Simulated scan of single mutants.
Amino acid sequence: MSWARIMAPLAGAPGDRGLLASAAVLAEGFGAELACVHTPADMADLMPWMGEGFMGGVQVTALESLKEAAVEGRDAIDRLVGEFGYPRSRTIGLDSPVWAGLAMEGRLSDVVVFDNAAARGKGPLAEAFQQIVADEQRPVVVARPGLKVGGTVLVAWDGGKEASRAMRTALPLLEKAGRVVVTGAPAASSRSFDLDRLVDFLAARGVAAEARVLTGTGDAAGQLLGAAREVGADILVAGAFGHPRLQEFIFGGTTRSLLNGEGPSLFLSH
């Protein structure tokens, strides 16, 4: 099992450089295609306030500005991808409706990479992050400094379906890890689970893992981030909890704390 296609949504902004660098590290670790997807502001988002059958000077100017920004952004991404020189890179531009194209590219990718800003609801890709995690339920990597393939991976486990989905989806990452630690706090969970069962599950799939029981009873995110620091984790694998989006996506408390906390890169699956 491996990852063959890794997707990086890019806005055509200065922040793309760090994100692309992280995505290239991940893609190179798997010899995967790196899909660099230009995700511009969508002109369709202007339509609700333009009115039907009428376009005034302000509206026309706004549309032209968005078109120019989209062209400039795509050109900037082409130059940036060329600078990095990863041989299996591919640049893809999205047209309106951008959300539909983004969804399709996500469905055709094994994992999608975002940076801290988007994951924390900031910057031009914040909405894209919510769409990919909540609406599309695609696995994502929130890339932070120090991201690498082959280091130490900490797997958060509580026996639930979210944790199970994240762990199983992350198997290619675990197979390449130099060290895998599975951790959980039985005393803080309403579920009954045994970390050794997960160790056995992974061993049957060729992944040698060790168990680390957390003894606390509260602040699951704080305990997980503490454990990540103690074992020197490069990546933390966790299930993403949240409510289905109506007008706004709302993360559960633990997921929100992991996103806003200081720690290793995150692998999340909702």
Results as ranks from 00 to 15, higher is better:
3 W>E: 01
3 W>R: 01
8 A>T: 09
9 P>G: 01
13 A>Q: 14
14 P>C: 09
14 P>L: 09
17 R>P: 10
23 A>C: 11
27 A>N: 01
27 A>S: 11
27 A>W: 02
31 G>W: 06
32 A>Y: 00
33 E>D: 07
37 V>F: 13
37 V>C: 13
38 H>D: 07
40 P>M: 10
41 A>N: 09
43 M>L: 14
43 M>P: 13
50 M>H: 13
51 G>H: 14
54 F>M: 14
67 K>E: 15
69 A>C: 13
69 A>T: 15
72 E>K: 15
76 A>D: 14
83 E>K: 12
87 P>Y: 10
88 R>F: 06
95 D>K: 10
98 V>F: 08
106 G>D: 06
111 V>P: 01
112 V>D: 05
116 N>E: 11
116 N>A: 10
117 A>M: 09
119 A>P: 00
120 R>N: 14
121 G>A: 02
124 P>D: 11
126 A>H: 04
126 A>G: 03
128 A>W: 06
129 F>N: 03
130 Q>K: 09
133 V>N: 04
135 D>K: 12
139 P>S: 07
141 V>W: 01
143 A>I: 07
145 P>F: 12
146 G>N: 06
146 G>D: 10
151 G>S: 02
157 W>F: 05
158 D>L: 02
158 D>E: 05
160 G>R: 11
160 G>F: 12
160 G>D: 07
166 A>Q: 00
169 T>V: 03
170 A>T: 08
170 A>H: 02
170 A>C: 06
170 A>P: 02
170 A>Q: 03
181 V>H: 00
182 V>K: 00
184 G>M: 08
184 G>P: 06
186 P>L: 10
187 A>M: 05
189 S>D: 09
190 S>R: 13
191 R>H: 09
198 L>T: 00
199 V>T: 15
200 D>N: 12
204 A>F: 12
205 R>C: 04
205 R>E: 07
206 G>A: 02
207 V>L: 11
208 A>K: 13
210 E>A: 13
210 E>I: 05
213 V>R: 15
213 V>P: 11
217 T>Y: 06
218 G>H: 08
227 A>T: 07
228 A>R: 02
229 R>Q: 14
230 E>L: 13
233 A>H: 04
234 D>Q: 06
234 D>Y: 05
240 A>L: 07
241 F>C: 14
245 R>C: 07
245 R>Y: 11
249 F>I: 10
250 I>P: 06
259 L>A: 00
265 S>C: 08
